[in-house]
Amino acid sequence: MRIAAIAVMAALLMTAMPTTANAYNLSVTVTVNGSTEPVANAVVFVDSAEQAAPVSAEIYQKNRAFHPHVLVIPVGSSVDFPNRDNTQHHVYSFSPAKTFNIELYADRPAAPIIFDKPGVVELGCNIHDHMQGFVIVTDTAAAGQTDASGQVTLAIYPKGTEGSQDKVALEIWHPRLPDNTRPVTREIERGSEPAIVTLELEPEPAAEGSLDRLQQRFREL
Protein backbone atom coordinates (compact mmCIF):
# COMPACT_ATOMS: atom_id res chain seq x y z
CA MET A 1 0.00 0.00 0.00
CA ARG A 2 2.80 2.41 0.92
CA ILE A 3 4.54 1.87 -2.43
CA ALA A 4 1.28 2.44 -4.31
CA ALA A 5 0.63 5.65 -2.38
CA ILE A 6 4.10 6.96 -3.17
CA ALA A 7 3.60 6.16 -6.85
CA VAL A 8 0.28 8.05 -6.91
CA MET A 9 1.83 11.07 -5.18
CA ALA A 10 4.73 11.11 -7.65
CA ALA A 11 2.32 11.01 -10.58
CA LEU A 12 0.34 13.93 -9.16
CA LEU A 13 3.50 15.98 -8.70
CA MET A 14 4.59 15.28 -12.25
CA THR A 15 1.27 16.47 -13.68
CA ALA A 16 1.36 19.61 -11.52
CA MET A 17 4.83 20.63 -12.71
CA PRO A 18 5.27 22.48 -16.04
CA THR A 19 6.69 20.18 -18.65
CA THR A 20 9.96 21.10 -20.35
CA ALA A 21 10.02 18.10 -22.67
CA ASN A 22 8.95 20.27 -25.62
CA ALA A 23 11.30 23.14 -24.80
CA TYR A 24 13.07 24.57 -27.83
CA ASN A 25 15.21 27.52 -28.93
CA LEU A 26 13.67 30.10 -31.23
CA SER A 27 15.93 32.31 -33.36
CA VAL A 28 14.44 35.61 -34.52
CA THR A 29 15.81 38.30 -36.83
CA VAL A 30 14.16 41.75 -36.79
CA THR A 31 14.53 44.09 -39.79
CA VAL A 32 13.11 47.44 -40.86
CA ASN A 33 10.00 47.04 -42.99
CA GLY A 34 10.77 47.28 -46.71
CA SER A 35 14.51 46.69 -46.31
CA THR A 36 17.07 44.27 -44.94
CA GLU A 37 18.37 46.79 -42.39
CA PRO A 38 18.69 45.01 -39.01
CA VAL A 39 16.96 46.43 -35.96
CA ALA A 40 19.26 46.39 -32.95
CA ASN A 41 18.00 46.51 -29.33
CA ALA A 42 14.46 45.40 -30.16
CA VAL A 43 12.88 43.60 -27.20
CA VAL A 44 11.38 40.25 -28.20
CA PHE A 45 9.44 38.02 -25.84
CA VAL A 46 7.13 35.00 -25.98
CA ASP A 47 4.62 33.68 -23.46
CA SER A 48 6.29 30.76 -21.69
CA ALA A 49 5.75 28.33 -18.83
CA GLU A 50 9.01 29.57 -17.31
CA GLN A 51 9.08 32.87 -15.42
CA ALA A 52 12.38 34.53 -14.55
CA ALA A 53 13.12 35.40 -10.92
CA PRO A 54 13.14 39.11 -9.97
CA VAL A 55 16.50 40.87 -10.09
CA SER A 56 18.12 44.00 -8.70
CA ALA A 57 19.22 46.42 -11.42
CA GLU A 58 20.05 50.06 -11.95
CA ILE A 59 19.60 52.83 -14.48
CA TYR A 60 22.10 55.57 -13.80
CA GLN A 61 22.15 59.12 -15.11
CA LYS A 62 25.36 60.32 -16.74
CA ASN A 63 25.91 63.17 -19.21
CA ARG A 64 22.22 63.95 -18.83
CA ALA A 65 21.10 60.60 -20.24
CA PHE A 66 19.74 57.33 -18.86
CA HIS A 67 22.08 54.32 -18.98
CA PRO A 68 20.96 51.89 -20.24
CA HIS A 69 18.43 53.61 -22.48
CA VAL A 70 16.31 50.40 -22.37
CA LEU A 71 16.29 47.95 -19.46
CA VAL A 72 14.49 44.58 -19.68
CA ILE A 73 13.62 43.01 -16.32
CA PRO A 74 11.29 40.32 -14.93
CA VAL A 75 8.20 41.42 -13.03
CA GLY A 76 8.88 42.04 -9.34
CA SER A 77 12.39 43.38 -9.95
CA SER A 78 13.82 46.46 -8.22
CA VAL A 79 15.67 49.26 -10.01
CA ASP A 80 17.90 51.89 -8.44
CA PHE A 81 18.42 55.27 -10.17
CA PRO A 82 21.82 56.62 -9.08
CA ASN A 83 22.76 60.10 -10.29
CA ARG A 84 26.35 60.23 -11.58
CA ASP A 85 26.03 63.71 -13.03
CA ASN A 86 27.17 66.94 -11.43
CA THR A 87 23.63 68.27 -11.67
CA GLN A 88 20.41 67.16 -9.98
CA HIS A 89 17.72 65.10 -11.70
CA HIS A 90 14.00 64.56 -11.16
CA VAL A 91 13.13 61.09 -12.50
CA TYR A 92 9.50 60.15 -13.06
CA SER A 93 7.08 57.93 -14.96
CA PHE A 94 3.33 58.04 -15.35
CA SER A 95 3.04 54.86 -17.45
CA PRO A 96 0.17 52.56 -16.40
CA ALA A 97 2.60 49.70 -15.67
CA LYS A 98 4.41 51.86 -13.08
CA THR A 99 3.83 55.42 -11.94
CA PHE A 100 6.45 56.98 -9.69
CA ASN A 101 8.16 60.27 -8.94
CA ILE A 102 11.70 60.70 -7.54
CA GLU A 103 11.88 64.40 -6.77
CA LEU A 104 14.98 66.51 -7.34
CA TYR A 105 18.03 64.63 -6.04
CA ALA A 106 21.77 64.11 -6.33
CA ASP A 107 23.79 60.96 -5.67
CA ARG A 108 21.31 58.11 -4.98
CA PRO A 109 17.58 57.92 -4.09
CA ALA A 110 16.64 56.61 -0.66
CA ALA A 111 15.10 53.39 -2.04
CA PRO A 112 14.84 51.53 -5.37
CA ILE A 113 11.62 51.35 -7.38
CA ILE A 114 9.80 47.98 -7.48
CA PHE A 115 8.30 47.15 -10.87
CA ASP A 116 5.43 44.86 -9.91
CA LYS A 117 3.42 44.75 -13.15
CA PRO A 118 4.40 43.76 -16.69
CA GLY A 119 4.40 46.47 -19.33
CA VAL A 120 6.31 49.34 -20.90
CA VAL A 121 7.46 52.05 -18.49
CA GLU A 122 8.63 55.33 -20.03
CA LEU A 123 11.08 57.41 -18.00
CA GLY A 124 11.68 61.14 -18.08
CA CYS A 125 13.47 63.87 -16.16
CA ASN A 126 11.42 66.92 -15.15
CA ILE A 127 14.56 69.07 -15.28
CA HIS A 128 16.07 67.93 -18.59
CA ASP A 129 13.36 67.59 -21.22
CA HIS A 130 15.44 65.58 -23.70
CA MET A 131 16.16 62.71 -21.26
CA GLN A 132 14.23 59.55 -22.07
CA GLY A 133 14.51 55.92 -21.00
CA PHE A 134 12.41 52.77 -20.88
CA VAL A 135 11.93 49.82 -18.54
CA ILE A 136 10.33 46.78 -20.18
CA VAL A 137 8.85 44.54 -17.48
CA THR A 138 8.09 40.98 -18.61
CA ASP A 139 6.28 38.06 -17.00
CA THR A 140 8.11 35.42 -19.05
CA ALA A 141 11.65 34.06 -19.05
CA ALA A 142 11.58 33.90 -22.85
CA ALA A 143 12.69 37.50 -23.38
CA GLY A 144 15.73 39.16 -24.90
CA GLN A 145 17.08 42.02 -27.02
CA THR A 146 18.36 41.82 -30.57
CA ASP A 147 22.06 42.36 -31.21
CA ALA A 148 23.68 44.61 -33.83
CA SER A 149 22.65 42.15 -36.56
CA GLY A 150 19.02 42.24 -35.41
CA GLN A 151 19.13 38.69 -34.01
CA VAL A 152 18.06 37.13 -30.73
CA THR A 153 17.55 33.52 -29.59
CA LEU A 154 14.92 32.68 -26.99
CA ALA A 155 14.50 29.49 -24.94
CA ILE A 156 10.79 28.62 -25.13
CA TYR A 157 8.98 26.44 -22.61
CA PRO A 158 5.47 25.93 -24.04
CA LYS A 159 2.48 26.09 -21.71
CA GLY A 160 0.43 22.88 -21.57
CA THR A 161 -0.44 21.76 -25.10
CA GLU A 162 0.84 24.96 -26.70
CA GLY A 163 3.93 23.12 -27.87
CA SER A 164 1.79 21.38 -30.49
CA GLN A 165 0.47 24.61 -32.01
CA ASP A 166 1.59 25.58 -35.49
CA LYS A 167 2.10 29.29 -34.77
CA VAL A 168 4.11 31.25 -32.22
CA ALA A 169 3.04 34.76 -31.17
CA LEU A 170 6.00 37.11 -30.74
CA GLU A 171 5.69 40.34 -28.77
CA ILE A 172 8.19 42.90 -30.10
CA TRP A 173 8.98 46.38 -28.81
CA HIS A 174 11.35 49.14 -29.86
CA PRO A 175 11.58 52.77 -28.69
CA ARG A 176 11.02 54.01 -32.27
CA LEU A 177 7.73 52.20 -32.84
CA PRO A 178 4.98 54.65 -33.89
CA ASP A 179 3.24 53.70 -30.63
CA ASN A 180 6.01 52.77 -28.22
CA THR A 181 3.69 52.46 -25.22
CA ARG A 182 3.10 48.78 -26.06
CA PRO A 183 4.66 45.96 -28.08
CA VAL A 184 3.41 44.80 -31.47
CA THR A 185 2.48 41.18 -32.13
CA ARG A 186 3.86 39.09 -34.96
CA GLU A 187 2.83 35.48 -35.61
CA ILE A 188 5.33 33.09 -37.14
CA GLU A 189 5.12 29.49 -38.25
CA ARG A 190 6.72 27.21 -35.70
CA GLY A 191 9.74 25.47 -37.19
CA SER A 192 10.30 28.15 -39.85
CA GLU A 193 13.60 29.22 -38.38
CA PRO A 194 15.37 31.48 -38.45
CA ALA A 195 12.20 33.59 -38.25
CA ILE A 196 12.38 37.03 -39.89
CA VAL A 197 9.95 39.74 -38.77
CA THR A 198 9.75 43.39 -39.79
CA LEU A 199 8.92 46.60 -37.93
CA GLU A 200 7.75 50.05 -38.99
CA LEU A 201 10.00 52.52 -37.16
CA GLU A 202 10.03 56.27 -36.73
CA PRO A 203 13.21 58.20 -37.66
CA GLU A 204 15.88 58.66 -35.03
CA PRO A 205 14.82 61.50 -32.69
CA ALA A 206 16.93 64.59 -32.26
CA ALA A 207 19.34 64.47 -29.32
CA GLU A 208 17.68 67.49 -27.70
CA GLY A 209 13.97 68.13 -27.37
CA SER A 210 12.88 64.52 -28.02
CA LEU A 211 10.72 64.56 -24.91
CA ASP A 212 8.64 67.65 -25.63
CA ARG A 213 5.35 65.72 -25.71
CA LEU A 214 6.22 63.64 -22.65
CA GLN A 215 7.21 66.77 -20.75
CA GLN A 216 3.93 68.45 -21.67
CA ARG A 217 1.95 65.43 -20.47
CA PHE A 218 3.84 65.53 -17.16
CA ARG A 219 2.98 69.20 -16.64
CA GLU A 220 -0.68 68.51 -17.37
CA LEU A 221 -1.00 65.90 -14.58
Rank of each mutant, 00 (worst) to 15 (best):
K117N: 11
P68G: 04
A57T: 02
F134D: 05
A40G: 04
D47K: 08
N86F: 03
E162W: 03
Q215Y: 12
F94V: 10
S48L: 07
A141D: 05
N25A: 13
W173K: 05
L13S: 11
V28D: 03
E220S: 12
A52Q: 11
G133S: 06
T20V: 13
L13M: 15
I3R: 13
T36I: 07
A53V: 05
M17T: 15
V8A: 13
K62I: 11
V120L: 06
I3N: 13
A49P: 14
R84S: 10
M14R: 14
P194A: 10
G163F: 01
L12D: 09
Q88R: 12
N126H: 14
L154N: 05
V70L: 02
E103Y: 14
H69E: 00
T99K: 10
P109A: 14
L211E: 15
F100L: 07
R176G: 02
N83M: 04
N41V: 01
R84T: 01
D166I: 14
K62A: 15
T87L: 04
Q132M: 14
L214A: 07
G191L: 03
V32K: 13
L26N: 06
H174L: 01
S56Q: 14
N101S: 12
D129M: 14
S48F: 01
S149D: 12
C125E: 03
I196D: 05
A207E: 08
E202Q: 05
K98A: 01
P203E: 14
Y92C: 10
G119A: 07
Y105P: 03
V28F: 07
S27R: 09
A10C: 09
A141V: 07
L221K: 14
L221I: 13
V168T: 09
S77D: 00
R2D: 15
L170F: 00
R217A: 09
P194H: 06
A11Q: 11
N33E: 14
F218V: 00
G34L: 06
E208K: 12
R219K: 15
N86M: 09
E122C: 05
V137W: 01
E171D: 07
S56M: 12
I113V: 07
S78V: 09
V121P: 10
D129S: 08
V28L: 05
D212F: 12
T146R: 01
L12R: 07
P178I: 07
V120K: 01
M131A: 07
N180I: 02
P158V: 04
